[in-house]
Simulated scan of single mutants.
Amino acid sequence: MNPLKKTLLLTQAAIATRRVHLLPEPEGERSGIVTPRDGQTDSQEPIRFVAVGDSLVAGSGVSSQAESLTPRISSRLADATGRCVAWQTHAKLGSTMRRVRYRFLEEVEGHVDVLFLCAGSNDILARRGRQDWVDDLTAAIDIAEGLADHLIVCSSGQPHNSPKLPGMLRKELAKRINAQTEDSSRICRDRGIDFVDVAHAPLFDGFWASDGFHPSAAGYEFAADQVFAAMSFLERL
């Protein structure tokens, strides 16, 4: 990268730091049980669904954990399988895949039916190297496969489309997110793991929360649809 472009990007990043006021993680329980909407359940044990990751898992952008991504995915799992779903999240605003690898996956206890692994945006924003991402994601998958019967990995969010960020910075973030998504997709494909690319999903009016950086309730509803559609293992639950 030439020195002038680097200087401009650093300047825009500094401006963005002052301009973007991230919404906090919402209050509420980070675990619960969801039943199928038709009220009909079989006698099997609830599906155990655990999500680990960054602010997309922590629910930043909505007013309560009940509106966040994990319980929304759980509702779809319950309706599709006719089974109750016991869900739980381990996440924090600002987390990188390294934090997921060394902290949140260590917090998961017992048998897990489905594990949702979601991080990436903060690795991009922290300008971590591409090989660092590959190493951390690969190691996190190794750990996750030992914890769960089924694993689904999610791409980063869409900071490159945030209306709060300057144009040149968005373009640079998009380039890095494209490379990260390519690496993640390849790793998951080679290992036979479901991967969902929400980084390139089409957005719509009302997608963003008031901070212009996290999804709104409607945005999380849309993301839950994307994640659920990428699950290839539903018939085996």
Rank of each mutant, 00 (worst) to 15 (best):
E109T: 11
P215G: 03
L125M: 13
V196I: 07
S155P: 10
Q158D: 02
H160V: 00
V52R: 07
A209N: 05
S68N: 11
I141R: 06
G157R: 08
F116C: 15
D136Y: 13
W208C: 04
D113L: 05
V196C: 13
T81R: 01
K5E: 12
V114G: 05
T70N: 02
E107W: 03
T11W: 12
G110S: 04
R99H: 13
G61S: 12
A51C: 05
T17S: 14
V153A: 10
P215K: 10
Q158N: 01
S162F: 07
D194S: 14
K171M: 13
A139E: 13
A199G: 04
I33M: 10
E109S: 15
R48G: 00
L115K: 08
M1R: 01
D79G: 03
V20A: 06
L151E: 05
L4D: 04
D123Y: 11
V62Q: 13
G32W: 08
R30S: 09
A201L: 05
R130M: 08
T181D: 11
Q180G: 01
V114R: 04
V108C: 01
N122P: 08
V62H: 06
S95D: 14
A174W: 00
L77C: 01
F49V: 00
S185Q: 12
Q12N: 05
E109I: 05
N161G: 00
Q40F: 02
F204G: 10
L10T: 09
Q40T: 04
F207I: 03
F49D: 01
D183G: 05
T7I: 06
V85N: 02
E45K: 14
T70E: 03
A179W: 11
H111Q: 12
L237P: 01
A144S: 12
A78R: 04
L4F: 14
A230K: 08
V112Q: 06
A119R: 08
G59I: 05
G157Q: 07
A14N: 02
